[in-house]
């Protein structure tokens, strides 16, 4: 693990016209580190994730990322081609709604293989082998490789999204509420899977969630947001067990046995 951070955000601010999205967010993320961003809805979590993943342009501030070749780049200065390449090779994005992150009309194998083909893989046998390998790793039966995600359950769709994102061995994965909308047992299984993969692959993850249990299970560090501002950061157990801010105390105490 390198001393230099993988990703560093400095003074990230986003205004939607008059309205504040998020304000002056600064943090570093190192390789293999899992950072949870928690807060109630409307607190700017998703805006922050969008800024980091270059889906939104910041009103102020910058995000720097250390590329695979070791060069640190300002993400706002990437060309569109570079940005897309980064998004589909070194990054992953697991979305809350699987329909946004998957091609629903394309088979599971095609969904996993798409990134490979996009970066130039042109051998059907190899693409298919990689796809079935990844489907196995996310516990999707080999027999479902030619089925479309339309026929998949919610939990399966999320796992397929994860496979699709991890097939190019990214170093950083963004997750936007990956477990919400799933029932509790499926959630538990998915969290287990994510935790296993993160540990095994040494992924850095930025996970946005309103569920403190998810944050506790997955993350090393936690960032609490409220009204677009980061009000408390620290190690996950430290923040959850001994919250300093009144709002965080409220948040923690309002969860049933987190």
């Amino acid at each position: 693990m390198s001393e230099r951070p993988l990703l560093s955000a400095r003074g990230l601010t986003k205004y939607y016209g008059e309205r504040l999205g998020c304000w002056d967010v600064t943090f570093d993320l190192h390789e293999g580190e899992v950072l949870a961003v928690v807060g109630e809805s409307g607190s700017g979590k998703s805006t922050l994730l969008g800024l980091l993943a270059t889906e939104l342009a910041p009103s102020a501030g910058a995000v720097h990322y250390r590329m695979r070749d070791g060069v640190v780049r300002d993400l706002s200065e990437l060309t569109e081609a570079e940005r897309r390449l980064l998004l589909r090779t070194d990054w992953g994005f697991v979305r809350q709604d699987a329909r946004e992150g998957l091609r629903m009309g394309v088979s599971a194998g095609g969904n996993v293989g798409e990134r490979l083909m996009a970066v130039g893989a042109r051998h059907y046998g190899n693409i298919r082998a990689a796809a079935s390998d990844w489907l196995a790793r996310v516990e999707i039966e080999a027999g479902r490789i030619d089925d479309t995600p339309k026929s998949f359950s919610g939990g399966m769709r999320q796992r397929l999204q994860i496979a699709r994102n991890l097939v190019t061995h990214p170093r950083l994965v963004f997750m936007d509420e990956p477990t919400s909308g799933l029932d509790v047992s499926v959630q538990a299984r998915l969290l287990d899977l994510i935790r296993g993969l993160v540990a095994e692959l040494g992924l850095a993850v930025i996970i946005v969630t309103h569920d403190l249990a998810v944050a506790r299970l997955l993350s090393h560090r936690i960032m609490v947001m409220r009204r677009g501002r980061v009000i408390e950061t620290g190690l996950t157990d430290q923040v959850l067990d001994d919250p300093r801010e009144a709002y965080t105390q409220l948040l923690v105490s309002s969860v049933l046995a987190a």
Binding site: E80, A81, R84, R103, V106, S107, G109, G110, G113, E114, R115, M117, A118, V119, R122, Y124, I127, R128, I145, D146
Partner: peptide, 21 residues
């Protein structure tokens, strides 16, 4: 945009689907 960036992986997804089916 895809044409401008010569980003044609999608075309192969279609061919992949053909072979898979």
């Amino acid at each position: 945009k895809l044409h401008a960036l010569a980003d044609y992986g999608l075309m192969h997804v279609k061919l992949y689907e053909d072979i898979a089916r």
